[in-house]
Design a protein around this nucleic acid. Structure first.
Lengths: 248, 248
DNA sequence: CGTCGATTTGATGCGCGTCAACTTGAGTGG
DNA sequence: CCACTCAAGTTGACGCGCATCAAATCGACG
């Protein structure tokens, strides 16, 4: 399971798996042709660093397959994950020369990269790209604000339940299943990565996962395979009033 | 000091105080003329609610003068502020019918509102608006992520120092002073609002402000008037490595 | 001068962090 | 095939930082 076969990744935008969700979603075929000319694929193995905060970044990119994370680190080593990048999510900021966060591949990862300069030129010349990027950025801003509530006000147990609910919902979405009744999925994050996302320590994450298991909210097979027998029960544990959020 | 004189607010975009920073910053004069036709001003007194989360919202707006906040509330009453809106900041989301957060005026507030439908049409027809809005949204996303680090990983003392540094920096910016040496400003937030922003209780906020005063990092005149004798010293207390952030 | 919200300060408790030991499981090589 | 290794995860003991509950003080305004 070291690395995927790169040849299996389509190089044709037409049948790209993220065609209708990524930054290129609204492009017409002629616009896609222009994008094809400035794009290239890059692959990373699980655990690899894509780029370090502060480094020069001469591309922007879409996640095609796999999961990446954005992380901030304080000088004394405290870390906070500030973004979880799923397929179709956008990496990088037009108009900024350097990376603002550490970007890391938590699973094997394939990204569709665009050279920054030509991409920025396309943004001004073809509104479809800028429009879609604005929409995606507004969604990310909502997600970040939802996460601020979690970080500032939720208990450890609620944080864990919230994270599991988000991953479960995303997974159900990818599998085109409704997020009701029993759900089964694999955690794409280690306990430490979960801790960095939730503003906790890995020990607290481990304890709360065990507690949710003990209370029958979730079942575990191995360390990473999660079974949620009753999704509504999990939602109750998140502390949220409604059944959701917009974190996909 | 109950309310400002509305007549003093310019209704001409040309000499608007936020002309070069707001969503209209890049507009040419003909585009400004179109904006003039769909805009109107609204004023709120300190403490007033601008809109409740979930309510129908048929406008978007720019803060002209004063300060507003975005807040989320959980069913049991826990509150987390997710945005601090200063002059030139944008309120509302094109394409969404309802408000996602409670918006509150913490000082007397004047907003420049645009009817949503015509504004959305202008966004597609005049790229200058969409471009500027994208830029502003990306800045807000960075600010939100900076705040995630604060909420998830900083101590109470660091949180207070960070908030004071942000307000001091913004204030120096408005007064066109450099943020070095001694700085003087008024807190625009109550202790409770500071607590809601920082993910703390108001008692902890009060205690940490007192501690910073006792340690000579700040001086107080009354409850709200702050003197920072040495800005670099304050920065040291934030836990940040560099001297800043991009939170205005 | 009295009132009431805002703020401060004190006493106490608990949730989560810290430190440390142990368990699990996958990979490695003899 | 089975020790050996090592990263990932679990669990326990203990302490601290911040929340909670409570009371006092400040300050603006009638």
């Amino acid at each position: 399971m070291a690395h995927h076969d790169l040849q299996t990744v389509s190089h044709e935008c037409g049948d790209c798996p993220i065609r209708h969700r990524a930054v290129c979603a609204r492009c017409e075929s002629d616009e896609l042709q222009r994008l094809e000319q400035i794009k290239y694929y890059r692959s990373y193995q699980a655990g690899q660093t894509v780029i370090w905060s502060g480094d020069r970044m001469d591309f922007v990119a879409s996640v095609v397959t796999g999961i990446a994370t954005l992380t901030q680190t304080m000088e004394d080593g405290r870390r906070q994950m500030v973004g979880l990048l799923l397929p179709s999510d956008f990496v990088g900021r037009p108009g900024r020369p350097t990376a603002a966060y550490d970007v890391t591949a938590t699973t094997d990862l394939v990204m569709c990269c665009f050279r920054k300069k030509p991409f920025e030129e396309m943004m001004t010349s073809t509104p479809h790209i800028a429009q879609r990027l604005l929409e995606m950025t507004l969604d990310e801003l909502d997600a970040a604000r939802e996460w601020m509530l979690l970080l500032g006000r939720k208990t450890a147990r609620e944080k864990i339940a919230s994270l599991l609910a988000i991953i479960a919902r995303r997974d159900a979405h990818l599998k085109l299943k409704s997020a009701k009744g029993a759900i089964v999925f694999d955690l794409p994050l280690t306990r430490e990565e979960m801790a960095d996302y939730l503003g906790l320590t890995l020990e607290t994450v481990s304890r709360q996962v065990s507690a949710l298991k003990r209370d029958g909210v979730i079942e575990l097979e191995g360390k990473r395979h999660i079974i949620v027998p009753d999704f509504d029960r999990l939602i109750e544990e998140t502390g949220d009033d409604n059944d959701g959020g917009f974190l996909v």
